[in-house]
Design a protein around this nucleic acid. Sequence first.
DNA 1: TTTAAATATTCAAATATTTCGATGTATTTA
DNA 2: TAAATACATCGAAATATTTGAATATTTAAA
Lengths: 92, 92
Amino acid sequence: MENKQFEKISKALSDANRIAILQKFKKKKKDCVYCSDINETLDLTQPSVSHHLKQLVDADLLISEKEGRNIKYFLNDEVLDAYIQALNLLKA
Amino acid sequence: MENKQFEKISKALSDANRIAILQKFKKKKKDCVYCSDINETLDLTQPSVSHHLKQLVDADLLISEKEGRNIKYFLNDEVLDAYIQALNLLKA
DNA sequence: TTTAAATATTCAAATATTTCGATGTATTTA
DNA sequence: TAAATACATCGAAATATTTGAATATTTAAA
């Protein structure tokens, strides 16, 4: 993984609200989470949530999929694994 | 690992200069790196390098040890592993 | 014990990020 | 087609981060 992508992912992970978003995937026991769910959970306005989701998508940590007027998000396990691998390489 | 610590580590990892610092540990094939080495490598003034090193130490990614008027840094593998574990938990 | 070397701290400027109100766009429903 | 719903974008304010010049501190050497 390129340093630039590593930096971008780290930045995406460096905010309490975005961490909370990612943790929703674990708690839900479903593989997708809806934008509206996140809007309800976080104590932020809709534009702020939209901004945070965009950062996660731009970092490729989340994959978004349109479903009518809703948006579904999926955790991108491949990118998460690649990030973990890059971290493991630091220990070499 | 607490979310707060996870956030702090992610933030520490979200800067190109700090990533370059961490990669010096791999490249050197030695387990410690001196402050002066990093000052020579990075294209930044000494106070800026000092600031970045402080962030890595504050996030517990680096352990610092005084040696005369020099400072030696060690990579904190335990914290790196704990961070990796927290990332793996996101996939659950 | 003065001087030099290595690193830290302070302060301010530049830049980036976060947040939200207002508004725009797309899609569904009435 | 008009209204409502879900989400995105814009613009601005508040806040945080990055950077370096100046200076302080600590330790070693002369």
